[in-house]
């Protein structure tokens, strides 16, 4: 399954009227890789996904999924290998969850007899005979996940998959995705929250205003963002002002109280600073290095480097 199930966008662009929803995006998702798309609303995440799903055609550049143009007429075979979970997934309300899933399974020529087991897996066993209109948002999302998993897809596209899920369901959801990852499925998922996808993606693609502004692992993005590392010192009572003064020059002092000092340390200055902390001797009881919050990395890229 992992052979050839890659996603390749070559200079892909899409315009809606005068507005460029996506411009010259080059992105290659390797077989079995998980790439997370992040960016504000309107950054182009959904448009990019629509291109990958063949729902819309690029105005410029090209899109290939498993080597096939997803928007072309001959993409039927490819569609059978695609799983998609839209943001705020919706179903025809009058039909039961079970009937909905069986409908999609038949369309995909997936094993219809697996539907009940799949509903059980996503925790809808008790509700499967109820009309979908009586479902809560979380239940609809779980039904959406069940349909995305029909026929063990080789490529999964998940648009804000965990909106409306409580933390427990969120965890279960990602556990389920981990299973698919292990089996070699390629995944493209979008999220507003870097923290949520931190451990669930191999690389992160940041979109801003329709352009791909950053692509890399989280560590690479952190380094590129250069968001300062926070260092918290726990010091002897009363020694804080003296030590703070001693350390002040190259690092911005974020916060001092009686026995704690917070330092914002620019990337590359961490080791020299820690050496000077060590020089402060016994007055420093503890040192805590706090990696830059992911939200700050996110803000750095999604608001634009030029604004900083």
């Amino acid at each position: 399954m992992s052979r050839g199930n890659d996603i390749v966008l070559g200079g892909a662009g899409k315009r809606y009227g005068a507005r460029a929803a996506l411009e010259g995006v080059d992105l290659r998702v390797e077989p079995g890789e998980r790439v997370a798309l992040i960016g504000h609303n309107g950054a182009g995440k959904t448009t990019l996904m629509k291109l990958v799903l063949g729902l819309t055609r690029p105005d410029s550049g090209s899109v290939r999924v498993c080597g096939v143009d997803p928007g072309a007429r001959g993409s039927r075979e490819l569609r059978r290998r695609l799983g998609y979970l839209p943001e705020n997934v919706a179903f025809q309300g009058g039909i039961s969850g079970r009937a909905s899933l069986r409908f999609y399974a038949r369309l995909k020529r997936a094993d219809v007899s697996r539907c009940d087991a799949l509903l059980e897996e996503v925790g809808l066993a008790d509700a499967m005979h109820r009309p979908v209109r009586t479902y809560s948002k979380g239940m609809r999302q779980r039904l959406g996940l069940a349909q995305a998993l029909l026929g063990s897809p080789a490529v999964l596209v998940l648009d804000e998959p965990t909106t409306g899920l409580d933390p427990v369901l969120r965890h279960e959801f990602y556990t389920r995705l981990d299973g698919l990852h292990t089996s070699g499925a390629t995944m493209l998922l979008s999220s507003h929250s870097l923290a949520e996808i931190e451990t669930r993606s191999d690389r992160i693609a940041v979109l801003r205003g329709g352009r791909l502004v950053a692509l890399g692992t989280l560590d690479e993005l952190r380094a590129r963002a250069g968001v300062p590392v926070r260092i918290r010192l726990r010091v002897e009572r009363g020694a804080a002002p003296r030590i703070a003064e001693m350390l002040d020059s190259p690092t911005a002092l974020a916060h001092v109280n009686g026995c704690e000092i917070d330092l914002a340390c620019p990337t590359g200055q961490k080791m020299p600073l820690l050496r000077r902390v060590a020089d402060a001797g016994l007055a420093v009881h503890d040192v805590e290095v706090i990696a830059p919050p992911l939200d700050e990395v996110y803000r750095f890229f999604s608001e634009g480097e030029e604004q900083r």
């Binding site: 729902l55 569609r79 059978r80 839209p86 919706a90």
Partner: peptide
Amino acid sequence: ERGTLNLLLTYPVS
């Protein structure tokens, strides 16, 4: 309008 069309069109149907 309900958002079910997008999903349907990602399936192998013309």
